[in-house]
Amino acid sequence: MSAPSLVRIEHVSKRFGSGPLVLDNIGLTVERGEFVSLIGPSGCGKSTLLRLIAGLTEPTSGQLVIDGMTPEDARELMFFVFQDANLMPWRKVAENVELPLLLRGDATARRTERVKRMLEVVGLGDAAGKFPWQLSGGMRMRVSIARALSVAPEILLLDEPFGALDEMTRDKLNEDLLALRQTDPFTGFFVTHSVAEAVFLSTRIVVLAANPGRVSTVIDVPFPYPRPPELRETPEFLQLLAATARALRAVRGGH
């Protein structure tokens, strides 16, 4: 058998209790090393889809297979970056990054070394001893990403991580995220509202329609990595941006 796909989402539907259908018959196969953005109007279930992959909620029907396992069994391969930085306010920056390693049972020396490296990678070496409240929103998000990458996950699930940040900070963090992927490769799932962000980061963009949430279009992003910031100003980039915006407008049409 040749290397199977890393993530297979097969005929997945989801409703909460007896409520309306949130996701309807979603099918998606993702290979190792891809970076897939999920984009769509609010209520299209993109965050729910992410949570299904993480095993934080169960599908009503259909199945998800992650590296041959159920999402719950595959949790060790995954990490989740939440909408807000989701740091523990009583732990210092370094202690927050250390938490997943601590819970996993890594030895102290290994933890210290890994935390140091991760903080350097996200450019927060000096902030190790600070508390989260002493950081800006962008810095908090960096800590959150450092924490997620500290366990070197195979799959990183990001739920609108940069939604609350200003555009400049967001662009910078997008570039940094790609740089991180060059050194510590992971397969990414990225929920966003921003077309520009999706095009800049992804290998594929999945446009979802709402009520019920379903896959409307899948757009391939052909640009090779590493992607320099200047990519954003090229005609090819802008063309794809426009095409994605159009696809998004089409699913919004009814509203």
Partner: peptide, 18 residues
């Protein structure tokens, strides 16, 4: 307890004691 933090612990496969 913050719901998101609980889910973080869930993702980390934390034990009840942890």
């Amino acid at each position: 307890v913050d719901r998101n933090l609980r889910e973080l612990f869930l993702m980390c496969k934390a034990t009840r004691a942890q």
